[in-house]
Simulated assay, not measured.
Amino acid sequence: MGHGSDDGAARRTFAVGETVALGGFQVLSTTQEAFAHELFAALAAGQPRRVLFANTNFVVQCQPLRERLRRLPALRIVNDGIGMDLAAQWLQGRRFASNLNGTDLVPWLCAHSPQPLRFFLLGGQPGVAEAAAIALRERHGQAVVGTCDGYAGRARAGEALVERINASDANVLLVAFGNPLQEQWILEHADRLHVPLVLGVGALLDFLSGTARRAPDRVRRWRLEWLYRLWHEPRRLSRRYSWDLLVFFRICWRHRRG
């Protein structure tokens, strides 16, 4: 009887490693552990990876970038948030293997990497990247080889900043501009960046620096972190979790045939 229950659960979930067409994007169904091991293997082999976390806001804001992202080498788009699961369940009758986000994945990479990683942090208000760097060094035991705040990062000549990042010998670049600015930046500089692992991480630097607070563990387990954030930032997030959510489901319906 237990096997039957397991088989039923498996049929309701996309397999680890399966690619799911959702909202016009190809989204990888995976778990945090499996995905981390893929990234570690790619780092060890010197293979590039560009990682984006697709939540409902990503799907809405990055629609104009779909074709360019499709052509980006070594791209991995993974699912982030309950909205992606709801859309997948609605349209394809299955949910993703797990939920991933940069805020959880990056500390997991730090804790399980075979050797310390070398981070370059790009984004946030002035002072945020520097404070996040202290957290990565002191709490997570990693090396931070460079930082640049989001204002300077977007205003500074792209070539000069890319040269600075490449010269830092970072093997992980965190780009924290939010959607769709971080995806645009990664696309614009993809050909010149030598950093093997680049992640678009949204608000991660704010969380690492203590500028923003994460929801309590219990709220995250219930997958209600979005509600916690909306409660604390209603003016900034109310549209994202109301009108934009309707737009998201309309986009997913329009692209339902993949």
Rank of each mutant, 00 (worst) to 15 (best):
E138N: 14
F207D: 02
Q115D: 14
T103D: 11
F96E: 08
V16K: 07
Q115I: 11
A41S: 12
L91M: 11
A152V: 14
L117N: 10
R66C: 00
D149T: 04
L224C: 09
G24T: 02
N101W: 09
V128C: 05
E130G: 06
P64Q: 04
V195H: 07
N55E: 00
Q63A: 03
A157P: 14
R70E: 03
S168I: 11
A74V: 07
R192S: 15
G102Q: 02
H37Y: 05
N99I: 15
V16E: 04
M84V: 13
Q47K: 11
E38M: 08
G124H: 01
F177G: 01
F119W: 08
H3F: 10
D206N: 06
V106H: 02
L230S: 06
G81N: 07
Q47V: 12
N79H: 09
G202Q: 02
R71C: 04
L100F: 15
I82K: 08
Q182K: 03
L22P: 07
V175S: 00
R214F: 03
T211W: 07
V162L: 13
I251R: 00
R220C: 15
I165H: 08
V198A: 01
L100S: 11
S5K: 12
A176C: 12
V20C: 12
G200H: 00
P126H: 13
D191A: 13
N101P: 05
T103W: 01
G178Y: 00
W253L: 12
A74W: 10
S168W: 04
V198K: 03
L237P: 09
F249L: 03
A42V: 07
A111H: 15
R154V: 09
G102V: 01
A74D: 12
F35Y: 09
E38A: 09
Q125T: 08
L174T: 00
W90P: 09
W185A: 00
Q61L: 10
P73K: 08
Y228Q: 06
P107A: 14
R164I: 07
G4K: 13
L75M: 02
A176I: 04
D149N: 15
G127S: 07
E138R: 14
T19Q: 11
R221I: 15
E67G: 05
G200Y: 00
V78Q: 04
Q61G: 04
V106T: 04
A9C: 13
A45P: 02
L43S: 10
A155C: 15
S168V: 12
P126M: 10
R50G: 02
V201K: 00
V16W: 02
L205C: 01
Q47M: 11
R236F: 10
D6V: 15
G178A: 02
L246E: 03
H255N: 06
V195P: 06
G124F: 00
R12A: 10
L52N: 01
A88V: 14
L245P: 06
R257T: 02
F25W: 01
L204E: 02
H194Q: 15
L173R: 01
W231E: 13
W231H: 14
P114C: 13
E159Y: 14
S242P: 07
Q89D: 15
R11W: 07
E188D: 09
R213Q: 15
A111C: 14
I82H: 10
Q47N: 11
R70N: 02
L246C: 08
R70M: 01
H37Q: 09
R11K: 10
N55A: 04
S168L: 11
P64K: 05
D7V: 10
G124E: 03
V51C: 02
R256N: 08
